[in-house]
């Protein structure tokens, strides 16, 4: 069972993403800002962090950098409502994203998803990261 921490300031995003991941059999805990997320990450033993990048207060890039430092093994997915060219986002030669997502990758994110992602994109991405952890 995979434990996932989800940080996003949008309630609808938190709830819909949680629903999708829980249906896949994962455990999801949510935080509505980076401060709350960092507090949860300290005690909880999460496998994957999914964090929005642009948020009020501490922004996602800082949160990702802190968690990467404290949890080197945790897989991190950055999500943001930046530019999106569908599945091409997964092809390195054609990646286009915002400076924020670029910064998130530099801060330690393993993957980026641009909103609005489809259900399959989200599920595939999480599954791939779980497989990578097991290897």
């Amino acid at each position: 069972m995979t434990k996932i921490l989800l940080i996003d300031d949008e309630t609808d995003v938190r709830e819909s993403v949680s629903r999708v991941l829980e249906r896949e059999g994962h455990t999801v805990q949510t935080a509505e800002n980076a401060e709350a997320g960092l507090a949860l990450a300290k005690n909880g033993n999460f496998d994957i962090l999914i964090s929005d990048v642009i948020m009020p207060g501490i922004d996602g890039v800082q949160a990702i950098r802190q968690i990467r430092n404290s949890h080197p093994d945790m897989k991190i997915i950055a999500i943001s409502g930046g530019g999106n060219f569908g599945r091409r986002a997964y092809q390195p030669e054609a990646i286009t994203t915002t400076a924020y997502l670029q910064a998130a990758v530099e801060a330690g994110a393993d993957w980026v998803l641009t909103k609005p992602f489809e259900r399959s994109e989200l599920v595939d991405c999480v599954n791939e990261l779980i497989t990578a952890t097991k290897q």
Partner: peptide, 18 residues
């Protein structure tokens, strides 16, 4: 506006799919 819409589209797409 696009950024906001993207956030709104996330639950629409995911809930519809479910």
């Amino acid at each position: 506006i696009a950024h906001e819409l993207n956030n709104i589209l996330v639950p629409i797409i995911l809930y519809a799919d479910i």
